[in-house]
């Protein structure tokens, strides 16, 4: 009696384990259909870098008319909603005055041109991003090429990353954004309510060999390239011009530079 019961439990246990493992085997087994395995790889056209970076030449972007097409290009391809309520605003790239883009750097007697120049601000794609440190689910994380990404599938909407970001670069979907998207780009997903979003350096475009939308729309005012490559366009610009970054004193290592 005793031994047969033990035997039964053993068999039951093993079969329960088997049932649990079966789907895993299924995936492996069936991916070998036709005698070949399926595989996953990068596109040949994909652009790669050690650390993507951006140099914004503010001398070439002097009026609202200069920056508007750049902002619109991003908004359009990324399905950024236009909320009427300012509290619910979603912004990936937008313009700020010098004193807001560079708080702490403002001078009492400031160059007149700089004072009201429209500075484009976006996620700085920091080398040591505090937002990634704060995220409790790795929904925001840093890729090998330095891009700080959002995994919208995983975000629980705790907004710790928003508190951690010293640049105010992150937005939260306080409500379903879809009704507020004027022109939908069907090739890029919208977001759902309850997740955080921000600029992704156009990771989806880099994957197919294109530069970010804002760079393309800037008529050469924004340069984009590999900060790790001494021969790249951005490194060339950084060698030849004096540039500033936002709050680099905090040690986050912003990858967006400004020529003023």
């Amino acid at each position: 009696m005793e031994s047969s019961r033990r035997k039964f439990i053993k068999i039951a246990g093993i079969s329960a384990l088997g049932l649990g493992v079966k789907p895993v085997f299924n995936v492996f087994a069936s991916s070998e259909e036709h005698g070949r395995k399926s595989e996953i790889k990068k596109s040949k056209d994909a652009l790669t870098a050690e650390q993507w970076g951006m140099v914004i030449d503010t001398r070439k972007l002097t009026t609202a008319e200069d920056v508007e097409p750049i902002i619109n290009a991003c908004n359009k391809i990324h399905n950024i909603p236009d909320h009427q309520n300012k509290n619910h605003e979603i912004k990936w790239i937008w313009e700020e005055e010098y004193e807001h883009a560079f708080p702490g750097k403002e001078n009492k007697y400031l160059n007149e041109r700089i004072e009201h120049l429209p500075f484009l601000v976006l996620c700085n794609q920091c080398e040591d991003p505090p937002c990634c440190r704060a995220c409790p689910t790795k929904a925001t994380f840093q890729r090998e090429d330095g891009i700080v990404m959002m995994d919208f599938h995983r975000c629980i909407g705790c907004r710790f990353c928003m508190a951690a970001c010293p640049y105010g670069s992150r937005s939260f979907n306080f409500r379903d954004p879809r009704p507020f998207i004027k022109e939908k780009n069907n090739e890029f997903p919208t977001r759902m309510k309850g997740v955080v979003e921000k600029c992704n350096f156009c990771a989806e475009r880099l994957a197919v060999g294109k530069k970010p939308a804002c760079v393309e729309a800037s008529n050469g005012a924004i340069a984009f390239g590999d900060l790790g490559d001494p021969g790249s366009e951005v490194r060339e610009l950084l060698r030849e011009n004096y540039t500033i970054r936002r709050k680099q004193g905090l040690g986050t290592g912003p990858s967006v530079y400004y020529i003023v």
Binding site: H34, A46, H153, A207
Partner: peptide
């Protein structure tokens, strides 16, 4: 969705090639 977003690999080669 994991490989595209997290591993940046975007091409799937099916078992028929």
């Amino acid at each position: 969705r994991d490989t595209v977003v997290r591993d940046t690999d975007r091409i799937y080669v099916s078992s028929s090639g």
